[in-house]
């Protein structure tokens, strides 16, 4: 009897620290297999981006002029340091300049990761700042900022992007800045909405009655409570930023060549040699599709799992039935 209670207490103690992250992962795999699949793709993208130097078989700009437009598995010859003739294999073929498509896709992943994370982080920071201010202070601040957001959002995204990039010129930081700003301002609405409903909670009033300062209330009481929508916003924005960057690069407004961006690969090599060497168009396109799909699935699963309405019940659905409710 005493042993049993002792071991039960021991269990209760050991289960505390692991509860959050591990339990969440467990639920992700159990309840949202597709989301878990997306998470894995996302992880692969991340690792590919970080370790591109080790994964790529060649530099993204190494040219083999004799072995252009080889199909996947095609061979190429080169001379090593001692001027001996060597042969290598193009894993995914080569382009019109004789560059290894596999290596370019791997380095393209790095560019996608850098842009996606920087632009999304920037956008979330902007969204949080604007949204928290507008939602919490309300009144004129809310009015002014929301009318500004309205005006901003009445322009089509692509127009803003093209205008901004043509003023700033193509390049990595320009793309990051413009995408961060674009999605940041649009996302402030979602943050504002979450703040508006969180602000009315009794615990916010309670925090006021204990004399907490406004920054403290914002950062300690409101921010953690809106993290669920913010995390979801983050993942969906990641996918959107990757797509937008590819779109810009496709139009020649993103990352300038020769740096390999998936969008640029589709446009320069892919479009021109579509019939002669279809792998040039198909492979970057497939990479893009899988990554965006994976991140979206992951984001979807996160949204379902982090739904605040499920909090308190251990986060499980009643009887595990699927929910199809969509929020934007």
């Amino acid at each position: 009897m005493t042993e049993a209670t002792a071991s039960a207490q021991g269990l209760a103690k050991t289960s505390r620290p692991r509860s959050l992250v591990l339990e969440f992962l467990g639920r992700l795999f159990r309840e949202k297999p597709l989301g878990a699949f997306g998470a894995i793709i996302f992880l692969i993208l991340l690792l590919t981006g970080i370790f591109a130097d080790f994964i790529a078989t060649e530099g993204f700009n190494v040219i083999h002029p004799l072995d252009k437009l080889k199909p996947p598995g095609g061979e190429y010859t080169y001379f090593d340091a001692d001027f001996n003739k060597q042969t290598g294999t193009y894993l995914l073929g080569s382009d019109q300049l004789g560059r290894d498509v596999f290596s370019r896709i791997v380095y393209g992943a790095r560019i996608s990761v850098i842009i996606a994370f920087s632009a999304t982080t920037l956008s979330i920071i902007i969204s949080l700042t604007l949204g928290l201010m507008a939602g919490f202070f309300g009144g004129r601040i809310d009015m002014a900022s929301q009318r500004f957001v309205d005006a901003w959002m009445s322009f089509p995204d692509l127009i803003i992007l093209i205008v901004a990039v043509s003023i700033l010129g193509p390049g990595m930081w320009q793309v990051i800045l413009v995408l961060g700003l674009l999605y940041g301002i649009a996302g402030s609405r979602i943050v504002r909405g979450a703040v508006l409903s969180t602000r009315e909670n009794m615990y916010v009033h309670a925090a006021q009655t204990i004399g907490a300062s406004t920054p403290r209330i914002l950062l300690r009481h409101i921010l953690p409570n809106i993290m669920a929508p913010v995390i979801v916003l983050f993942t969906t924005r990641l996918a959107a930023v990757i797509l937008a960057e590819s779109g810009l690069s496709f139009l020649g407004l993103g990352i300038p060549p020769p740096a390999p961006s998936w969008g640029g690969m589709l446009s320069i090599e892919g479009k021109s040699y579509m019939f002669l060497a279809p792998w040039l168009a198909i492979l970057p396109g497939v990479a893009l599709t899988i990554v965006v799909y994976g991140i979206n699935m992951f984001g979807d699963a996160l949204r379902d799992l982090l739904d605040p309405r499920l909090r308190g019940g251990g986060g499980r659905y009643g009887g595990g039935k699927p929910r199809n409710k969509r929020r934007t």
């Binding site: 009794m202 615990y203 009033h205 953690p224 409570n225 308190g312």
Partner: peptide
């Protein structure tokens, strides 16, 4: 406050 259910911050 009146509402102990909502006066504590859930997170």
């Amino acid at each position: 406050f009146q509402e102990p259910m909502t006066s504590l911050n859930p997170v």
